[in-house]
Amino acid sequence: MRILVWHVHGSWTTAFVQGRHDYLLPVVPDRGPDGRGRARTWDWPASAVEVAPEALRDADVDVVVLQRPEELELVERWTGRRPGRDLPAVYVEHDAPRAGAADSRHPLADQREVPVAHVTAFNRLYWDCGQAPTTLVEHGVVDPGYRFTGESASLAALVNEPVRRWRVAGTDVLLRVAEQVPVHLYGMGVESLADRLTVFEDLPQAAVHDALGAHRAYLHPYRWTSLGLSLIEAMMAGLPVLALPATAAPEAVPPSAGVLSSDPDVLVAAARRWLADPQEARERGLAAREHALAAFGVERFLADWDRLLAAVVERGGVDRLTGVVA
């Protein structure tokens, strides 16, 4: 297939473009949100090609994978075809609903032409998608390989824009933990916290996994998020996990792989134990890697997407998308 898809979330798109299709990535002159084109810091195959908006009207496109409401209008303006009517389409909902989560109405809730594919069962349960067909395709992550050394008796955390996203990202929880055990913070916009913990900003993607693997465990302080791909990547890299039991985290992290608690003091106690006992940390991390590979392997992810795209392209297939993609 020839799939039109925007580069919105780098880690998710990295897994998505590993498939057997051709991927058309819109690119605009300033590489802004309407068209970032190919990633600069991830390794993408040659089948992921950039395409200018003016070339899309004559492009051979089999299906469009939407990720933001505004892309509905962009597709119609750039291709002359209406998603879900003139052009098969599916909408990926990456995020959990925000304020009033249980009552949040999805932007595509009032139509039936474009199915909504959720990335977690939690998201699917909480979004009110109205009459829109829904399905579930859980995340897939390209295996970074086993990276754990645990040589640094410290925790790693990866949070982008931790000040702007203070409570959502659990930055206050992060700082509370960092008052009692060493925490190294990676991500964008972290420099403003440099007076309170060790920070690393804008590491190249290729260096992130090695950097995380040097730490004894991974801290995921988010109060409210979908399912952070950094959490899955850390597990695949072989790090045990400390996290809040929020949104999809309890289903993603089994007890063998880490500790989940709403009490930061419980997380600190586990961190201290692992900092003092690198062997336990290693064993927990191996369990985390085993689970993440089984649950979030890219092969399963791509196979699920192949089945979903085939159903969307097939006439009448959308009406059958009422169950989990198996």
Rank of each mutant, 00 (worst) to 15 (best):
N123S: 12
F148G: 12
F148P: 13
T171H: 05
T149G: 06
R124C: 05
T135R: 05
Y146L: 13
D128P: 03
Y146C: 09
G150A: 10
A156M: 04
L125A: 15
L136H: 02
V141L: 06
D172F: 09
S152P: 06
S154P: 02
V168T: 10
V141D: 02
G170D: 12
S154Q: 08
W166H: 03
G140A: 10
A157H: 08
E151L: 03
W166K: 01
P162E: 13
V159F: 00
F122A: 04
R165Q: 13
E138L: 11
R167G: 05
N160T: 11
Y126T: 15
Q131K: 02
V173G: 04
P144G: 10
S152F: 06
L174P: 07
D143P: 08
G145I: 13
L174K: 07
R147Y: 01
V159H: 00
L155W: 06
R164T: 10
N160C: 07
C129W: 06
R164P: 08
S154L: 07
P162M: 13
H139A: 08
D172P: 07
T134F: 00
V168Q: 13
V168A: 12
D143H: 12
T135F: 03
W127I: 04
N160F: 11
L174M: 09
V137S: 03
D172Q: 09
Y146D: 11
V159E: 00
G145N: 12
A156W: 03
T149R: 11
P162I: 10
Y126K: 15
G150I: 05
H139Q: 10
E138D: 14
G170W: 07
G150K: 07
Q131P: 02
G145W: 13
W166T: 01
P162H: 13
D128Q: 12
D172Y: 05
G140C: 12
R124A: 07
A156V: 01
Q131T: 05
A169L: 02
V137F: 02
Y146Q: 11
E138M: 12
L125E: 15
R164F: 14
L136R: 06
D128F: 00
V159Y: 00
A132R: 06
R147F: 01
P133I: 10
G130R: 15
W166G: 02
S154V: 05
T171S: 08
Y126C: 09
T171W: 09
V141M: 07
P144H: 11
V141Y: 00
G140N: 14
R165M: 11
G170F: 10
E161M: 15
P133D: 10
Y126E: 13
D128I: 00
L125G: 15
N160L: 06
L158D: 04
Y146A: 13
A156I: 00
A132L: 06
R124W: 02
S154D: 10
D128H: 04
R124L: 07
T149F: 07
V163D: 06
G170R: 11
G170S: 11
Q131A: 03
T135Q: 04
V163G: 02
R167E: 14
L125D: 15
Y146S: 10
W127Q: 07
A153L: 02
P144S: 08
G130S: 14
L174W: 08
V173T: 11
L125V: 12
R124N: 02
V137E: 01
V142H: 03
